[in-house]
């Protein structure tokens, strides 16, 4: 599903974000990216989504060479990739329902699809009864659920999560992880960058550890350290 072959990325000022990284992630895997701040976790994720382009090496996602892809194809790549953030990135003036529907609307999905898919996904994330609330009327955990609903409503092949529990307390984080696990079990590949030791140690999934842009460790059923 995802393959990196000797991928390197250097930012301006010779900041090395990723150095000669190679890895292969199969369809349906759940992968934690761990490592200190600045170790290249976010760059890893941003390369998959073509927010950044690698300087060297080859990166393929769902069989497509992401680096060589012409820019007009990028939106179609992103339709196969859901993306969730530490800060949720919800639109404050839209309700829960509208935020999720927005993700389908702007890729031109027909209205009857939106009308059936959005309630179904809100049911999945447990927010059916809060569909008409605005984001600032929700708790952090609920806001992250909305963001997951928006990322998953188009049934992407891959879900990227950049510190999704970074702003949440441990109990709430467990709820979010249960949800991501459920999504993963439905066949979606999940790649999650995190600092949360207890989550990684509890879930015992594949762990890729990065250190100053280099892959230090790649273990199935790994732990944080």
């Amino acid at each position: 599903m995802i393959r990196l072959e000797s991928v390197s990325k250097v930012y301006k000022g010779d900041v090395v974000a990723l150095k000669n990284a190679s890895a292969e992630i199969q369809r349906g895997e759940f992968v934690f990216l761990v490592g200190p701040s600045g170790s290249g976790k976010s760059t890893f994720i941003r390369l998959l989504n073509r927010e950044e382009v690698a300087d060297e090496g080859r990166l393929t996602v769902a069989g497509k060479d992401v680096g060589e892809m012409s820019s007009w194809r990028v939106p179609y790549l992103r339709r196969q990739i859901g993306y969730i953030f530490q800060d949720y990135k919800l639109l404050p003036k839209k309700t829960v329902y509208e935020n999720v529907a927005f993700g389908l609307e702007v890729i031109g999905r027909p209205r009857q699809v939106i009308r059936t898919q959005v309630p179904a996904i809100l049911e999945l994330v447990g927010l059916s009864r809060k569909a008409d609330r605005l984001p600032d009327e929700l708790s952090g955990g609920e806001q992250q659920r909305v963001s997951i609903a928006r990322a998953f409503v188009n049934r992407p092949l891959i879900l990227l999560a950049d510190e999704p529990t970074g702003n949440l307390d441990p109990a709430t984080s467990v709820g979010i992880m249960r949800l991501l696990d459920r999504i993963n079990r439905s066949g979606t590949t999940v790649v999650m960058a995190t600092h949360d030791r207890s989550i990684v140690d509890t879930m015992r999934r594949r762990v890729i550890e990065l250190d100053r842009g280099v892959i230090r460790r790649d273990e199935s059923q790994g732990v944080y350290e």
């Binding site: 989504n49 007009w72 939106p75 179609y76 790549l77 992103r78 339709r79 990739i81 993306y83 990135k89 639109l91 404050p92 927005f102 993700g103 702007v106 890729i107 031109g108 928006r150 990322a151 188009n154």
Partner: peptide, 17 residues
Amino acid sequence: RQEIEVMKLVGATNWFI
């Protein structure tokens, strides 16, 4: 800006934006 950012992330085409 926020809306445009989200639109790009979920895969809206440039012309759509």
